[in-house]
Amino acid sequence: MSKYLIDKFLYTVDRDPDLVERYRSAPGELVAWWEAERANTVLNCMTGESSTWLRFTDDERQALIDHDHVRLFELGAHPFLTLTLFIAMFERDNKEPLEYQKAFGARLAHFDLPYPDIAT
């Protein structure tokens, strides 16, 4: 499992409006593309330097495809990275202020301290 790779995915997708829209509309396609094309690049550096070993586990990949922020949290994804990306994708579907954020938090309410480790 690579919490780093999950967080890198959330971080990089959130910073590109085109990737946000692709992730919203075709998550399986975007996750597969990102894993093949971006997972092994140096974060914020597109100079051709890369590694070859970073891959999502099947569980991580499925949680990303399913937009399952609860499972991502269980896997150690940073909740702020998940929340900011998911706000960009789903807040527009709600009518009330903070409606999405409240629902996001409510789905995580069953967690007790200590929370899953979010250190990378």
Results as ranks from 00 to 15, higher is better:
Thr84Ser: 14
Gly48Glu: 02
Leu64Thr: 01
Tyr11Asn: 08
Arg92Asn: 10
Gly76Ser: 11
Glu96Met: 12
Thr47Asp: 14
Ala26Thr: 12
Tyr23Cys: 04
Asp7Ile: 05
Lys3His: 09
Ala26Tyr: 12
Ala103Lys: 15
Thr84Lys: 12
Met1Val: 14
Leu81Asn: 09
Val31His: 03
Trp53Val: 13
Ala106Arg: 14
Glu96Ile: 12
Asp58Trp: 04
Ser50Glu: 15
Phe9Asp: 00
His78Leu: 02
Ser2Thr: 10
Pro17Glu: 09
Ala36Arg: 15
Val31Asp: 03
Glu74Tyr: 01
Trp34Arg: 07
Asp7Cys: 06
Leu72Asn: 02
Tyr100Val: 05
Thr52Ile: 12
Thr57Asn: 07
Thr82Glu: 00
Leu64Tyr: 07
Phe111Met: 07
Glu35Tyr: 06
Cys45Ser: 11
Phe56Trp: 07
Pro116Gly: 10
Met1Ile: 11
Pro79Ala: 06
Leu5Pro: 04
Leu30Phe: 04
Asn40Glu: 02
Met89Val: 05
Glu21Thr: 01
Tyr100Asn: 02
Glu91Ala: 13
Leu108Tyr: 05
Val31Ser: 05
Thr12Ser: 13
Leu98Cys: 10
Leu75His: 01
Pro27Gly: 02
Leu72Lys: 03
Gln62Trp: 01
Asp59Glu: 15
Phe80Asp: 14
Tyr100Thr: 05
Leu30Ile: 03
Leu10Lys: 03
Glu29Leu: 08
Phe104Lys: 05
Phe56Ala: 03
Gly105Phe: 09
Ala106Leu: 11
Lys8Ser: 02
Leu5Tyr: 04
Asp16Ile: 06
Cys45Tyr: 10
Met1Glu: 15
Asp14Phe: 05
Thr47Asn: 15
Lys8Trp: 04
Ala32Gly: 07
Val70Asn: 04
Asp117Arg: 11
Ser50Thr: 12
Leu81His: 12
Lys95Gly: 15
Thr52Arg: 09
Leu108Ser: 07
Asn94Val: 12
Ile65Cys: 07
Pro114Glu: 02
Ala106Phe: 08
Ala63Glu: 01
Arg24Gly: 02
Arg55Pro: 03
Lys102Pro: 00
Gly76Ile: 09
Thr84Gln: 11
Thr52Glu: 15
Thr52Ala: 12
Arg55Met: 03
Glu35His: 07
Pro17His: 09
Glu96Cys: 01
Tyr100Ile: 00
Leu81Gly: 05
Thr41His: 07
Thr52His: 11
Leu85Trp: 03
Ser50Asp: 10
Glu99Leu: 10
Asp18Met: 12
